[in-house]
């Protein structure tokens, strides 16, 4: 038989490190995910489908994925802009802004949720301005969109920043020497170099937004058929002790997450092939 399972190594600790890794991985990750798959398998596809196939659940899935996509798209544009400004320009406060980009990662989602609601509710600082102008932000899809933008904000910036930092000076100098305008250089030389990393950040931001719960439920208002996100319906099913229903929605979301993980990996492989680094 070809390759051995584990190559011999002079370094000790194989047994203990493999033992701890596989045991903890099994208890914390594999067993629980296995239980979800098993629950789905024992219920059967027909039952799962009948649980998911209701207007309310399709509505929530459509809302979640549509708004997550839009939020990730928004973050793609502003994430690249932020990365560019933070890497290339030097100004007072740059360090602070750079550190603050990670705030959505560090701030607990429940805190972000009530803070955003306080800001965008009709009597809040920004919400009252919207009210003057005649529209509502909190308790509408727009509010959910803003919460999803908040939680996904750092991904694109953090994946694109190192790539911008590594662009060699010659690339832009050659482009300028050959007569390209600055705009032409940015569109045809720089943006293509950033695309793979930006798309990776986009996918990460999208995946995060789809599963997001804490920061959304406060600002969403959770009106059936209008502002209910998919994760909320899992919580509702669990509160009704409908484990099969919760499993059906959970598996649907997991399947979509899995596809997105594959896409992320494919993008990374493709981009590594096209240019030397990303």
């Amino acid at each position: 038989m070809g390759r051995p399972l584990v190559h011999r190594s002079p370094i000790p600790g194989l047994g203990i490190s493999a033992g701890i890794t596989l045991t903890m991985l099994s208890i914390v990750v594999i067993l629980p995910i296995g239980a979800l798959l098993l629950k789905g398998a024992s219920a059967g596809f027909v039952t799962l489908w009948s649980e998911v196939n209701t207007p309310r659940i399709w509505g929530s899935l459509w809302l979640s994925f549509r708004l997550s996509f839009l939020a990730a798209l928004f973050n793609l544009v502003f994430g690249v802009l932020l990365a560019w400004v933070l890497v290339r320009y030097h100004f007072v406060g740059r360090r602070i802004l750079d550190a603050a980009v990670d705030l959505p990662f560090a701030l607990p989602t429940a805190v972000a949720g009530i803070a955003l609601t306080a800001l965008y509710a009709p009597n809040g600082a920004f919400g009252s301005i919207a009210k003057e102008l005649g529209f509502k932000i909190a308790y509408t899809p727009l509010g959910i969109f803003l919460a999803l933008v908040f939680v996904g904000l750092p991904f694109v910036t953090r994946t694109v920043q190192p790539v911008i930092a590594e662009i060699e000076a010659e690339v832009e100098e050659v482009s300028a020497t050959l007569g390209a305008s600055r705009l032409y250089t940015i569109i045809h030389v720089i943006l293509p170099m950033l695309t793979p990393a930006a798309l990776t950040g986009f996918a990460l931001s999208l995946a995060r937004a789809v599963g997001e719960y804490g920061s959304v439920i406060f600002i969403a208002g959770n009106i059936p058929f209008k502002t209910e996100i998919a994760p909320l319906l899992i919580v509702i099913k669990l509160e009704e002790f409908n484990y099969v229903g919760a499993t059906a929605i959970g598996l649907t979301m997991l399947a979509i997450s899995f596809v997105m993980l594959l896409v992320i990996n494919a993008i990374q492989i493709l981009s590594r092939r096209r240019i030397g680094y990303v």
């Binding site: 239980a35 979800l36 997001e212 994760p231 959970g250 899995f258």
Partner: peptide
């Protein structure tokens, strides 16, 4: 894997286990 799974689904998995 846990990074790409919704926290709500994670909670569901633990309840089911």
């Amino acid at each position: 894997l846990p990074f790409s799974i919704s926290p709500v689904v994670a909670g569901l998995c633990i309840v089911l286990t």
